[in-house]
Design a protein around this nucleic acid. Sequence first.
DNA 1: ATGGTTGTGTTACAA
Length: 256
Amino acid sequence: MKIASWNVNSVKARLPRVTEWLADARPDVALLQETKCLNEGFPALELEDMGYNLALHGQKSYNGVAILSRHPLEDIQIGLPGYGDDEQCRYIEATVNTVRVACIYLPNGNPAPGPKFEYKLEWMGHLKARVADLLKTEEPLVFGGDYNICPTDEDVYDPGGWQQDALCRPESRSVFRAIVNLGLTDALRQFKTGPGIYTFWDYQAGAWQKDHGLRIDHLLLSPQAADRLTDAGVDRAVRGREKASDHVPVWCELDF
DNA sequence: ATGGTTGTGTTACAA
């Protein structure tokens, strides 16, 4: 089973790129972030015609997450449990073919410090609690999404220039590390090691052309999922296409 | 270079 995550930066503006990628990469499950539309505005028919079932949690203009699955979606959970008063649509969870899958759009947190950074850290605290709860089930789990966290200096083209940014600050990295250390495996790093593995390049200042990227999209696996991990990668070429998102898909293959 | 780009949706805000 192939599971991918992609911040599409508007599913409506990106629809031609999304459908061509789905046809090419053929993921069984696709976790999309920044859909930027209400559920009634989501291009459901086009994606259902490609064989996908949908679970949606959208809002107007900002944020928004979706799970696309070739298998039936069971026990859909809208929003992050334990954070019922979160007004932003950043989390959705469902069971697919015995695997519990979470789609995460973690707050960016800039400018830091400030209220947006506090919100990011608060959100991460709730995510950590949810991960700890689900790990108790000892089921295969995949926590995928745009974490807006660059885990180490190896994951950014210019660590010095980014060390004050909410994506790289020690407080952000510390909570991310604490979540991973509950017992999760960074799927991509099992197959792609060393510097220069990126999933995001800013639209500005020719970042893509200069390969000024960051690795901020992740697939974190529970032990029962990691035991079945056979491959992982980044669909980097997607960034070079016309009307591209600023993020590219990251994917993993699980033997289920 | 106090710059640069994209998307939403009205002209500022988020990334």
